[in-house]
């Protein structure tokens, strides 16, 4: 134990993450404290950018992103729960095939899948509208270029990230517990709330955390499907960096997202036992 070679093996990864993950966060934090529109790091620290972030309407993009992440998390959970239960309890041998089919799209680029969603939803002669018009002669409108379409895209992209941890969670529920609860007179809802949900909680928690954090920064969905109907926080940051050439302001907004993420992730992560989950 005292002379364990563990630290030696951990060193390369630890040094890499320190240099390429921790350092950038420190640099962003430092830039966020620089006077507006400067390009160099100095020692005249100021909170002016954070003040501007609050007073000049940047709360709005942040609210859109938080709301979008919340709806995505709830939406994916509602779709993934019954799917996980079916796959675990009823699908038998088919479960592996279906699981692989659900996992595969993760490895196809977001650009490709969102483009596909875009041509599917396209108004008038898109795949959906065009097919319906051709086959049945009825014309439908389209939700493309609305916030709604961006949300559908976010649920679409993040569903596997919720489903797989949840599948793990549902597999932690022993079948006899459910039967015992039913025998004791609990109805479906009571069994779900009192037995299944608490037992599957670790998986649900990881899925929710992953989905929430990933969709908090999501930008491509709003760009490709939402037609920029709303400005999400990532788009606001990008604008500060690229068009406005105001690095300190962009850095301050980046820090706000990092702090929100940390407040949500760190308490949950501190409680999880990572050895049990990978085993």
């Amino acid at each position: 134990m005292t002379h364990s070679p563990g630290p030696k093996f951990a060193l390369p990864v630890a040094v890499f993450l320190l240099a390429c993950f921790a350092m950038p966060i420190v640099i962003v934090a430092w830039y966020s404290l620089m006077p507006p529109r400067t390009f160099d790091l100095g020692i005249d620290l100021t909170l002016a950018n954070y003040h501007t972030a609050v007073t000049e309407g940047y709360a709005r993009p942040l609210m859109w992103s938080l709301l979008g992440a919340l709806i995505t998390t709830l939406g994916t959970a509602l779709i993934a729960w019954p799917s996980a239960v079916i796959l675990h309890r009823h699908a038998g041998r088919g479960a592996t095939v279906v699981s692989v089919l659900i996992a595969l799209p993760i490895f196809i680029s977001e650009s490709v899948r969102l483009f596909g969603m875009n041509v599917f939803l396209m108004p008038r002669a898109g795949i959906l509208a065009g097919s319906l018009d051709w086959a049945f002669g009825f014309k439908i409108g389209s939700i493309l270029n609305t916030w709604m379409a961006a949300l559908v895209g976010m649920i679409y992209i993040h569903l596997p990230f919720m489903l797989f941890p949840l599948l793990l969670g549902v597999s932690l529920i022993p079948q006899d517990r459910i039967e015992a609860a039913r025998d004791l007179g609990a109805n479906r809802w009571q069994t779900f709330r009192e037995v299944e949900l608490p037992l599957a909680a670790p998986g649900l928690l990881i899925g929710a955390l992953l989905t929430f954090v990933l969709s908090l920064g999501a930008n491509a969905e709003a760009a490709i499907l939402g037609g920029r109907a709303v400005t999400v926080i990532t788009a606001a940051i990008e604008q500060r960096f690229n068009y406005a050439q105001d690095w300190p302001m962009g850095a301050a907004l980046t820090m706000v997202v990092i702090i929100v993420t940390a407040v949500i992730v760190l308490p949950v992560l501190a409680r999880l036992d990572l050895n049990r989950l990978t085993q």
Partner: peptide
């Protein structure tokens, strides 16, 4: 291996996974 800093190492290691990627890219 089981070593003293392992639990901390494990938690720090997963942090980049629980991080909004575009924000990481911009940073």
């Amino acid at each position: 291996y089981d070593w003293r800093g392992r639990s901390l190492f494990q938690r720090i290691l997963v942090l980049p996974i629980f991080f909004p990627q575009p924000v990481l890219g911009l940073g």
